[in-house]
C-alpha cells in the first residue's frame, strides 16, 4: 500500500458516500444518472467476487463490502424508493453500447482465461466507461448540482491517484498491470473536460452549466 493508492481509495469512498448522502438527505436523485449507478454496481459485483474466495486484508474486505453496499443502496434509492424523482427523460445513454464491446474485449484481452479473471477484466474495462451516462446526462440537462460536481471530482480523482500508484509500484516493486493502467488512463481522460469545468467554475463558486 502507498499513499497514492490510500488517498485514491479514500477519494473513491468519499465520492460514493457524498452521492449516497446527497440522494438520501435531499430525498431526490434529480440530475443523477441511474444507468451509471447500475454500471458501478455491476463493476463492484464482478470485481469483488473474490470476497467469497480469498481474504487479503481487513481493509480490503471492509472497503469492498462498503463499496458494494453503498452502490446497491444508491441504485435502490434511485429505482425504487425515490423513483418519482428519477429524471429518466435525460438519462438516455444506450448502455448496451458499453456493455457489449466491454464484454467482448474482456474475453479477448485478459491475463488469464478463467471466469474470475474474465469478470475482473470486464469490471476494469466497464469502470473506465461507466461514468459516460452521467456525463452524457449533464450535457443533456446543461447543468449539474454543485454537490454532484464534488461527487464527480472525487470519483475522477481516485483513478488519477491510482495512475500515480501504478507508477510508484512500477518503480519500487517492478509491478505493472497493462490492463488496469490502460483502462485507468482512458477513465481519467474522460474526466478531463469535467475537471477543467470544475476548476474554472465550481471552485470559483459558480454553478456548473454547459455549454461552458
Amino acid at each position: 500500500m502507498n499513499i497514492f493508492r490510500l488517498t485514491g481509495d479514500l477519494s473513491h469512498l468519499a465520492a460514493i458516500i457524498i452521492l449516497l448522502l446527497k440522494i438520501w438527505k435531499s430525498r431526490s436523485c434529480a440530475g443523477i444518472s441511474g444507468k451509471s449507478q447500475v454500471l458501478f454496481a455491476l463493476v463492484f459485483t464482478t470485481r469483488y467476487l473474490d470476497l467469497l474466495t480469498s481474504f487479503i486484508s481487513l481493509y480490503n474486505t471492509t472497503m469492498k463490502v462498503i463499496y458494494i453496499g453503498c452502490s446497491y443502496a444508491t441504485v435502490y434509492l434511485i429505482y425504487m424508493k425515490l423513483k418519482a424523482t428519477y429524471d429518466g427523460n435525460h438519462d438516455t445513454f444506450r448502455v448496451e453500447f458499453l456493455i457489449v464491446p466491454v464484454g467482448g474485449l474482456a474475453f479477448l484481452v485478459n491475463h488469464d482465461f478463467s471466469p474470475l479473471e474474465i469478470l475482473w477484466t470486464f469490471s476494469i474495462y466497464l469502470e473506465s466507461v461507466a461514468i459516460l451516462p452521467q456525463l452524457f446526462m449533464i450535457s443533456k440537462t446543461g447543468e449539474a448540482e454543485t454537490i454532484t460536481t464534488h461527487y464527480l471530482f472525487f470519483l475522477g480523482l481516485y483513478r488519477a491517484l491510482y495512475l500515480i500508484n501504478w507508477i510508484w509500484r512500477f518503480y519500487f516493486e517492478g509491478f505493472f498491470d497493462m490492463i488496469a493502467i490502460v483502462a485507468g488512463v482512458v477513465q481519467t481522460i474522460l474526466y478531463c473536460d469535467f475537471f477543467y469545468l470544475y476548476v474554472t467554475k465550481v471552485l470559483k463558486g459558480k454553478k456548473l452549466s454547459l455549454p461552458a
Binding site: 500500500m1 493508492r5 481509495d9 473513491h12 473474490d50 480469498s54 487479503i56 486484508s57 480490503n60 472497503m63 469492498k64 463499496y67 491475463h111 488469464d112 479473471e117 475482473w120 491510482y162 500508484n165 512500477f170 517492478g174 509491478f175 505493472f176 498491470d177 497493462m178 490492463i179 488496469a180
Partner: peptide, 10 residues
C-alpha cells in the same frame, strides 16, 4: 518485469 494482476487493489 512481467505484468501481473493486482490482487491487493480495490
Amino acid at each position: 518485469r512481467t505484468p501481473v494482476r493486482a490482487k491487493d487493489e480495490l
